[in-house]
Computed example of a mutant assay.
Amino acid sequence: MKSLGRLIIHLILAINVLFIALMLLSAYSPYIEPDKHPIQSCLGLLFPVFILINISFFIFWIIVQYKLALFTFIGFACCYTQIRTYIPVNFSNSDPPKECLKVLSYNVMGFNNLKLTKGENPILAYMKDSKADIICIQEYAYSQDKRYVTQKKIEQYLQAYPYKNIQNIGEKESTNKIACYSKYPILSSTVLRYKSAYNGSVRYELKVKNDTLTLINNHLESNKLTKEDKVIYEEMINSPEAQKVKSGSKLLITKLAEASAIRALQARKIHNEITSSKHKYIIVCGDFNDTPISYTHRIIAKGLKEAFTESGTGLGISYNQNKFFFRIDNILISKNFKAYKCTVDHSIKDSDHYPIWCYISKQQLKPI
């Protein structure tokens, strides 16, 4: 019986080591170039799954044979940075200084498809009440029909913002727009051109008191999932039958991999814009359509800090449809900024994204 018990323990340990290896592979998958290895680069999507499985193993070993929990502990230690990026915990709740900016980034889904309820639009009301200094908007839209959200209606809500810039992104026939509303002067705006039918990025120069900062507002390549694809995914989650999961996974992974490869090129373009900025203060925000454990996120975030990792808590899930529980909206800041109280705000559900906002202030870097 003892030998059988040892055999079972060794078998469980072997399975545990396998999942530790898979966790590490997913944690470091952002170093795989999606345009060269698109399928493998999607492994980061499974990072939270492998985390949960290994937590279960860790608890099991603590109860059954605590010394063997060391294997899982070492695995967690090897991907501590990725765990903190994915699900940060910040106990400090210090108030931002008076001299700071509040930045809001929001994919508004065309202001909920331009809908008005009794003449009002909840997304515009939210923005008005946010008291943000800078608002970056993705999937900006308006109608000429007064029964829906018009440009005039938007400006009535956002009259506290004397400076605005609205740009079409994507190819010529695209009607997708990105916008920036600011309490500070927008000195210039440049659409960053890269291959995409409907998506794009815009770089702004903003004059904020005595400083000029670079702001890049992004709406990167979507995952090309149709409504039918999203239904398939939701059915897989609700009823994980073997055949359904197998066929559904193959379809979804193929589409996710294709989009990931396109975003890789976009991410490099954005990173080049960041590194070539002539201004020392930089903010990069928007809908990345990719998770914190991804090549896209890693490339864009090079040399920057993630506001949510620095001052947020939890998963920060920012997409709220079809059980795609991921944080795909971001605010990144240069290292001479400090972030406070970064929040993915779940109080409003009128878009398929939640807004993300934070306070940022200048930070004096210590000399090396």
Rank of each mutant, 00 (worst) to 15 (best):
N16I: 11
I20N: 01
L24V: 12
L25H: 02
L25Q: 08
L25F: 15
S26A: 15
S26N: 04
Y28K: 09
Y31L: 14
I39N: 05
L43E: 02
F50K: 06
L52Q: 08
F57W: 09
F58M: 08
I63D: 05
F71L: 13
G75F: 12
G75W: 01
F76V: 03
Q82W: 01
R84P: 00
K102S: 01
Y106C: 05
N107F: 11
F111Q: 06
N121S: 07
L124N: 13
K128E: 15
K131A: 09
I135F: 03
Q138G: 06
D145H: 11
Y148E: 11
Q151G: 12
K152S: 13
K153N: 03
Y157T: 02
Q159L: 07
N176K: 11
S201D: 02
Y204E: 05
L206M: 13
K207N: 13
T212Y: 07
K224G: 00
V231P: 00
Y233S: 11
E235I: 08
M236G: 04
S239F: 14
E241P: 00
K244Q: 14
K246C: 04
E258W: 01
A261G: 09
R263N: 05
R263E: 05
L265C: 05
I270M: 05
Y281W: 09
T291F: 09
T291P: 04
S294A: 10
I299L: 08
F308N: 01
Y319Q: 07
N330M: 12
N336C: 07
F337Q: 00
H346P: 11
S351Y: 11
P355H: 02
I356T: 08
P367G: 00
